[in-house]
Amino acid sequence: PQLADQKTLAKQIYEAYLKNFNMNKAKARTILTGKTSTPPFVIHDMETLQLAEQTLVAKMVGSAGALKDREAEVRIFHCCQCTSVETVTELTEFAKSVPGFSSLDLNDQVTLLKYGVYEALFAMLASSMNKDGLLVAYGSGFITREFLKSLRRPFSDMMEPKFQFAMKFNALELDDSDLALFVAAIICCGDRPGLVNVAHIERMQESIVQVLQHHLLANHPDDTFLFPKLLQKLADLRQLVTEHAQLVQEIKKTEDTSLHPLLQEIYRDMY
């Protein structure tokens, strides 16, 4: 009966993942490997960026909006924020579908999201990346790693650490069923600062991590060390988020850019 419970939990979490996230690894890989009828529009310089803004991301940039005359770095930073806000919204809905999450103390739910969403976001971002770039605008565009690196500092420092993480993470060859459980494990984490009902969350975490471990053994029988490798990735993600939060604070201090109120809430007093 315990095994049956585990299978049910794995299935519920995987279904919630497929339902709530607009992009997933299977979709992203189909596009990145050229198996779609229309390949993504490649953004590799200022000219192609402008073209993409006029067509793919017109809504985000607001062609007639306040950002029209701002420099490319600021416009790209703004686009990153829009995507982040959307993903945080999706992650919130996903978390609510994880069995047990909604019955947690509301303040604890907030704490789990505050500390978990960026780790989850960067883990999932890897699905949309290859060594040369990153899918954007729901997979209709592809922005090159070189172009992102060529932006002026500090904006050029934003994505390179995520690419470096993604290349190592993608080498583990997880599929969406693995990622769904991994993202759930990131969110249901008992050692986030300020949690009230730690015991309740630790019980949830334990069952999710156990399901993840069994699922990996069944889904990747040739890689017996995949589970410990993934546990290490949890620590790497925490470090990646800490560095990202510092960079965003620096940008906020030195650049004339606004930060979305939802993201401000998440970053405020984070680490």
């Binding site: 919204t89 109120p261 939802l262 809430e265």
Partner: peptide, 20 residues
């Protein structure tokens, strides 16, 4: 609670538009 107003909103509403 005030410090995380939008996160609270997102958790309590099924979907809420989060515009810049």
């Amino acid at each position: 609670k005030e410090k995380h107003k939008i996160l609270h909103q997102l958790l309590q509403n099924s979907t809420s538009p989060v515009d810049l």
